[in-house]
Computed example of a mutant assay.
Amino acid sequence: MARRDHDDGADEGELFRAAVGPVRRLPDTPAPPAPPKPAPRARMAERDEANALSEFRQALQGEPLLAGDVLSYRRDPVPLSAWQRLRRGDLAVQDELDLHGATAREAEAMLRDFLHAAHRSGFGCVRIVHGKGRRAAELVDDGGLPVLKNLVDRVLRQRSEVMAFHSAPPAQGGTGAVLVLLAPPKRR
């Protein structure tokens, strides 16, 4: 057998291609899938909610209400005649929320949802029954103050749809309930 000399002028690359024969290019491997994007967050809403919660907690540092105290609040645009009718209990109550037995956290969520739904429904006057805070231990804090009554007072003062509120007359719950005058819903 004759040994082939590498000096015969043939390029090794050409010899290899001749020995292998025709080839086809393999398709490029696809890039690995990108990791999923994180779910969008409502950062502005979270910040607004945190600010509102902070303001709410600061408002709780104010003068607390006692069991027999009257809840009373009126924004400037409310006419005096409407305010007097609300105080007397002359306005027809269109819906009611009873917070008896709820914890402060549950009551706050229920109250916010109730006010939003009542305003969206176009109700003008609603009643919120919070109790007087004299009996149930979970409704009274360590200082003997009614938790739900103070919570309702603070939340109602912060809600833009609340125009005025006043403790109900004795026949409608007295200082254990509050009548709330809501702003008409905005037209779109």
Rank of each mutant, 00 (worst) to 15 (best):
A2K: 09
R3Y: 03
R3N: 05
D8R: 00
A10M: 14
A10G: 10
D11W: 05
D11L: 05
E12F: 15
E12I: 12
E12M: 12
E14L: 10
E14M: 08
A18T: 03
V20M: 10
D28Q: 07
P32L: 00
A34Y: 10
A34M: 07
P35S: 00
P36F: 05
P40S: 00
A42H: 11
A45P: 12
A45F: 12
D48H: 13
A50T: 03
N51K: 10
F56K: 00
R57S: 14
L60D: 02
Q61T: 07
Q61S: 11
E63N: 09
P64C: 01
P64I: 03
P64H: 02
L66S: 13
A67Q: 09
D69R: 02
V70W: 08
L71T: 02
Y73T: 03
P77E: 04
P79Y: 03
L80S: 14
A82D: 14
A82P: 09
Q84I: 06
R85M: 12
L86P: 05
R87N: 11
R88Q: 12
L91M: 06
L91I: 09
Q94V: 11
D98H: 07
L99F: 02
A102P: 14
E106M: 06
A107M: 08
E108M: 10
E108L: 08
L111E: 05
L111N: 03
H116C: 14
A118Q: 04
G124W: 04
I128D: 02
K132E: 10
R134A: 12
E138I: 15
V140K: 06
V140S: 09
D141L: 07
D141M: 08
D142N: 14
L145M: 10
P146L: 01
P146A: 01
P146F: 01
K149R: 02
N150G: 01
L151N: 02
L151A: 02
V152D: 04
D153P: 08
R154E: 06
S160W: 13
E161F: 07
H166W: 06
A168F: 01
P169H: 00
P169E: 00
G173P: 03
G174C: 03
T175G: 11
L181E: 05
L182C: 09
P184Q: 00
P185N: 02
P185Q: 01
